[in-house]
Amino acid sequence: MNDPGYSEERQAASLLVSRVKNGEPAAEAAMVERYSRGLRFLLRRKTRDTHLSEDLLQETWAIALVKIRADGLDNPGRLAGYLSGIANNLALGEARRAGRQRTTVNSDIVDLIPDSSSNPFRTVSRAEVCIEVRKLLDKLKKERDREILKRFYVWEEDKESICRRLGVDGVHFNRVLFRARQRLKSAIEASDRRKHFKVVS
């Protein structure tokens, strides 16, 4: 992977692991802050349960921080991979076991984990998303592009059959999906900003 962002990530991760191993509480907080959103998303996708995913997120950090504090990591640049591995194993174990024995979570760790209220994609309501998606569809100039979104996201047709049926190429298909995603992202972020706007007298 020649992505420059990937190299930056490896360096930042290595530094965080090193600082946590050296006993810096601020590094632990920064690590948890940096990776919790992604871990929460991953666990929610795997468990399909918001409350359970919160429990597993705490357990993930409990396991990871104990290990990093004590031994560090063999490959600290792959911290994200290490954390996603723990989260996946916990989610998989949860699916296998009905009566799971929970790891005792240190309350200090729980305090470090940011809640999801800072994530606009989680705070925006389903009804608001529905309104924004409707606006997005109305703004699309071509009926064919609306058809692409409908077939892909609602009817779950695959890309090849949609392209063949509607006579579009793969590049156009990707562009429609990317733009729709970007527009919704912008709309949700704008909505979130309006919520936090305060009138100061």
Partner: peptide, 21 residues
């Protein structure tokens, strides 16, 4: 995506787009 806020934004936007559709 664990280490990329932008990719995570895209991922969550796609998830909400699918649900919204």
């Amino acid at each position: 995506f664990l280490s990329s806020g932008e990719l995570l934004d895209q991922l969550e936007a796609a998830e909400r787009l699918q649900q919204g559709m």
